[in-house]
Simulated scan of single mutants.
Amino acid sequence: MHSGFQALREACPMMLSFCWEGFEASQAVQDDLLRIEDLWSLARARHGANGPWLFGEYSLADVFYAPVAMRITAYKLSVSDESQAYVSAHLSDPAFLAWRKAAMEDVYEPFPYELPLARSSWPGDTN
C-alpha cells in the first residue's frame, strides 16, 4: 500500500473520522480496486480457510491492507460481497479499532483533505 495503488491513495486520502457521501471513483481507482479484490480473492481461496483474514489467521498482509479497508469504508467504494466481508473483519478487529481510536485524538485545523461532499458517521459510531 505504501507505494502501490497510486490512484486509490491519491483520490482517497486517509480518513478515519467519518465517511464521505457521494464520492465517485475514477476508472483508475476502480482499476486499483479490481486488482486489490483479485489479490484478496486469490489469497483467501488458497490460504484463507481458517479464518476471516487473507491467510486465515491475522498476519502482516492484513496489517498492510488495513488502510485499503479504511478507504473502502470512508469513501463508500463499491466492492464484492466477499471483499466487503474482509473489510468488515477489519472494522471489528480490536487492533484496527485501537488504531482508529488513537488517530481520532489528532485534530487538524484546517482539515487537510476537504471534499465538496456531505459527511456521514463512520460505521459503528453512535455520535
Score class of each variant (00 low, 15 high):
56 G>H: 07
49 A>H: 10
22 G>F: 08
104 M>T: 03
70 M>L: 13
55 F>D: 09
93 D>T: 03
119 R>D: 10
19 C>L: 12
48 G>L: 06
78 S>C: 08
43 A>R: 11
78 S>Y: 05
42 L>K: 14
98 A>P: 05
95 A>Y: 00
77 L>P: 01
109 E>T: 04
64 F>C: 10
99 W>E: 08
102 A>F: 12
115 L>I: 04
108 Y>S: 09
18 F>C: 15
21 E>L: 15
13 P>L: 04
92 S>L: 03
38 D>K: 08
20 W>S: 13
82 E>F: 12
37 E>C: 06
102 A>H: 14
101 K>W: 14
86 Y>G: 01
57 E>A: 14
32 D>S: 05
95 A>I: 07
13 P>T: 05
48 G>F: 05
25 A>E: 14
53 W>V: 06
52 P>F: 01
78 S>G: 12
64 F>V: 05
79 V>C: 06
24 E>V: 13
104 M>D: 13
94 P>A: 04
118 A>E: 15
113 Y>L: 04
22 G>L: 10
80 S>D: 09
88 S>R: 09
114 E>M: 09
16 L>N: 02
51 G>S: 05
30 Q>T: 02
52 P>W: 00
67 P>N: 03
105 E>V: 03
73 T>I: 07
73 T>H: 12
73 T>Q: 10
23 F>N: 06
66 A>N: 02
27 Q>Y: 09
65 Y>E: 07
102 A>C: 11
96 F>H: 11
92 S>C: 13
44 R>N: 00
87 V>M: 01
110 P>M: 11
56 G>K: 03
46 R>Q: 14
33 L>H: 14
115 L>V: 11
113 Y>R: 07
100 R>T: 01
82 E>Q: 14
46 R>E: 13
100 R>H: 08
105 E>R: 03
53 W>S: 04
117 L>T: 01
